[in-house]
Amino acid sequence: MLFQRLFLGVWLIAGLVMMYLALDYQAPFSYEPVGPRAYPMLMLGLMSAGLAYLLIKPTPIDHAHDEKPMDAPTARKVVSCILLLLAYALLFEPFGFVPSSIVAGFLFARLYGGRWLPSLVTSIVMSICLYILFDRILDVPLPLGILDGLEI
């Protein structure tokens, strides 16, 4: 409940900051009665009102039937998963699709309880197959990155 209130509070503050920013949005000259400011102001205002209500009277969280309460190991896993996702996103382009996917795929597999060897083999095979499938067959261009010189 505390975390929920905290999150709602941050969200509300973000909404209010956005409203403050929106105050400046005015068209230099305009042909229509409603400028670019009204709509975001209206939405942010209603959202903030709803958030304020939730802050005062938070609804109890209805847990799914197979959900366990958050414990320290799970929390650690979630944080490392987020970091891994961010690193993958950052390295995707400069590092190239195949190398970054092999590394990220392997680490993901390990994080979700895969054993060393199967994880490694799966991620290598998967990355190369997905590259061929998307880049070569489906025409979705993917970055080669450090493999650029290989002329494949």
Partner: peptide
């Protein structure tokens, strides 16, 4: 198993996003 499924989801999702504009910004 999940350990094989999750990398596939994560990688294909990134491909889907990258295919739109080809920017790192969209991935982040």
């Amino acid at each position: 198993p999940n350990w094989a499924l999750v990398p596939i989801i994560a990688i294909i999702t990134s491909i889907g996003v990258y295919a739109v504009h080809a920017t790192t910004f969209d991935l982040i």
